[in-house]
Design a binder for these strands. Structure first.
Lengths: 256, 256
DNA sequence: CCCAATTTGTTCGTATGTATC
DNA sequence: AGATACATACGAACAAATTGG
């Protein structure tokens, strides 16, 4: 099939062959009604389907793989299969973007204050008994002072998993993604930047208290209470975070 | 530098050489303190830096390019340069993910009802006179009935650009991204799915009215009014959208 | 305007690794 | 264990694009 002729009328940024092939493969997939998990033609077939060499096909497949649209396996019955973009990849790619926007932790908490209460009341009706037990299990991980740094990290992650479970159950996939994503950002913040500071016992206790109260309110299906508790929880967390950052800059000054 | 030995203790998913190189290049970038816009070594240098063949280097670079972390140019002084992930790419990649979650338009509008009022009041203080004039210009594009389908699309996009400008000015990069992103999703919805229906004159008039009122309130720096107007605006838009979808399914039934 | 240098982009041929039967 | 089918990787060559003289 011949290529589109380059017009030279506008300074069009010349699209690379490999990228054209990647787009062509996407079109091929929708035209041939390929379903999730179905296999694409192997490299050789793609080579003569689009009349290009191995390297080019491989770069095109690489592009789709990086976007999470296909997975590739070696061996017989291997090759590229259509895939759903996995959440961790989507989160990573978006963090790549936001890295250059350098959001502050207050930016994060402002959004959590807005969204977490909504997530909680939406998840309330969808929570199964199993979910509630899982929330309790997660919360129990945090009901005592950590013995070492490893347990401290486990507890912090458990606190976030509490919110992740609610986000997954909230019934709105976009809101669910954003909730989960914000928790990923918090995790980066907490794990990689705030671990040098001593444990914040008051903070952990406050979180524990709110999570326990939230479970009770969720069981009672008390919408307004759930919403209010979650808002307070986020406000409290934001406040602790601000104090923590003040300590951090203080410590930085001392180090200098 | 030698590779990590494969332990075979756990079923580790065998990391491909090209992906290893991509990660190695990322490390190289941070270690050598490469700044935005700075150039990376060219393909030849990367080949012997990481002791691998050209194709492998190219796949690694392709991976970084698809993620938006580098741009690549040909010719003298060409090569790969460190780049900030451009917004359109981040939006596209996230839409790839959400495509498989198949969110409803109500999911979209629920979030807009929550976020757009917050965006508006946050942007209020940051809006320059130039911004306000731009808002007025955008709004004027919609102050008359469209003459053809092309203008209809222009007007719809202008309506969204109104909100995009506010999102960019809201001062919270994460919130700004989400606001812009939701508008992209709405755009897909409106342009590619709802254009078959006749123009919704009432809808356009309502939007025009709200945008004009919002500009006035923004100029007056009336926070509560801005917030209230934006909420009503979103509720109204959601309502129109629901009616439109009812028409769509109705039409679908007729076609069958 | 063309020429030459530089660097990416693409191709081919071959070899190796890996999973399946 | 061996054969097969497939991706993965290497190496050498050539094509195309961009820059600067």
């Amino acid at each position: 099939m011949t290529q589109h002729l380059h017009t030279h009328l506008s300074a069009s940024p010349r699209i690379k062959r490999a990228d054209q092939i990647a787009e062509a493969i996407k079109r091929w997939v929708v035209i041939n009604n390929v379903q999730l998990g179905d296999k694409l033609p192997n490299e050789k077939k793609l080579m003569d389907l689009f009349d290009c060499a191995k390297g080019t096909v491989r770069e095109a497949l690489k592009s789709l793989e990086v976007q999470g649209l296909i997975t590739v396996k070696t061996g017989p019955n291997g090759g590229a299969s259509l895939a759903a973009v996995p959440y961790p990849l989507a989160s990573k790619l978006l963090r790549n973007y936001l890295h250059f926007q350098s959001p502050s932790s207050s930016d994060l908490y402002q959004l959590r204050k807005l969204l977490e209460p909504e997530i909680a009341i939406m998840a309330m009706d969808a929570l199964s008994d199993k979910d509630l037990h899982e929330l309790e299990r997660i919360t129990q991980l945090c009901d005592h002072a950590p013995q070492d740094n490893a347990e401290r990290i486990i507890q912090r992650i458990a606190e976030l998993d509490f919110h992740n479970l609610l986000a997954e159950r909230c019934g709105n996939p976009i809101l669910g993604f954003i909730g989960h994503f914000l928790n990923d950002m918090i995790k980066d913040l907490v794990i990689y930047k705030k671990m040098q500071l001593p444990e914040q016992h008051e903070f952990s206790c406050a979180n524990l208290h709110y999570h326990q109260a939230l479970i009770k309110a969720l069981r009672a299906k008390n919408k307004t209470l759930v919403q209010q508790l979650m808002l307070e929880h986020m406000q409290s967390a934001h406040q602790f975070n601000l104090e923590l950052e003040a300590q951090l800059t203080e410590q930085l000054l001392v180090d200098l």
